[in-house]
């Protein structure tokens, strides 16, 4: 009973069991709203699952693999590039460059696509470039802020332990912020899926769920659109969980002080 009251009070920690009940209840509510919604444009669950079944036999699986592979490549590349750039901000020379790159997140892809097309040698490469650029500008912004927020005391501690400045960077910036790097990666990897549709729409020759989604949307097959969206959501959640798990394994200290674990 107390736990039920705590659900509506600020900063209360509730038991795992209560959380399970809460999530189940809210999911059921969501399904109920979906099933009983009077909106004619919202396809019913049955229609969506029927579309999912049909799409699967039309090659949704292979399209998913294509998109997943592209996204994975883009995440890996943008993570490496962004981390290197963010870590490079310890050197004053790189700070204005990173600050400039960070500002590029306000730009639309329109127009830039042309330049990337000139640089790329294939459709896959073009999509990869676009995706890496789209994710990296956000990733580098987040990670550069993590590096900038490291308190002076952490650097001093390393220096008092006779570490040279490169070792200080490795210990304090790279190792010391690994948990935060995983968190930034997690948020930006999710962004990759969001950008995927747009990017795959620009170069459709290789296919992918993004291209499939745009085709279905063009013909107003809403149930198919929802089916693909649902698939992307499940895949994204899996990816999110995997990165979270990796963070837990590599940085077990990160969650020790949290009130809500």
């Amino acid at each position: 009973m107390n736990d039920a009251i705590h659900l509506f009070a600020p900063n209360k920690v509730v038991s795992r069991n209560t959380v399970r009940w809460l999530v189940t209840f809210q999911l059921l509510m969501l399904v109920a709203i979906w099933v009983f919604s009077p909106t004619v444009f919202l396809p019913k669950p049955g229609e969506v699952f029927q579309s999912l079944h049909d799409l699967w036999f039309e090659g949704l699986g292979s399209e998913l693999i294509t998109s997943f592979y592209l996204n994975l490549q883009a995440i890996a590349l943008s993570a490496i590039l962004s981390l290197l750039l963010a870590y490079a901000t310890v050197i004053p020379f790189f700070r204005p460059i990173v600050a400039l790159l960070s500002k590029l997140r306000f730009l639309s892809m329109v127009g830039l696509t042309f330049f990337f097309t000139l640089m790329a040698t294939s459709g896959h490469e073009l999509k990869l470039f676009l995706l890496v650029f789209s994710v990296a500008v956000f990733f580098v912004t987040g990670m550069a802020e993590v590096v900038a927020a490291i308190p002076k005391e952490s650097f001093d501690l390393a220096r008092t332990l006779r570490m040279g400045e490169w070792r200080v960077v490795y210990e304090v910036v790279v190792l010391g912020q690994a948990d935060k790097a995983f968190e930034v990666l997690r948020q930006n990897a999710a962004m990759g899926w969001m950008m995927l549709t747009m990017v795959e729409g620009i170069s459709r020759s290789e296919g992918g769920v993004g291209a499939m989604l745009l085709n279905q949307n063009k013909h107003f097959h809403l149930s198919a659109v929802f089916a693909i969206q649902l698939t992307i959501l499940v895949l994204g959640l899996g990816q999110d969980y995997a990165i979270g798990l990796l963070r837990k394994i590599c940085c077990p200290y990160a969650e020790l002080t949290l009130e809500r674990k």
Binding site: E153, R159, T160, E171, G176, C251
Partner: peptide, 17 residues
């Protein structure tokens, strides 16, 4: 030189990782 004299700051910093 830094490192020759140990420093124990007020909040006892350690490498949290």
């Amino acid at each position: 030189q830094a490192g020759q004299v140990g420093v124990v700051a007020q909040d006892y910093p350690l490498f949290e990782h």
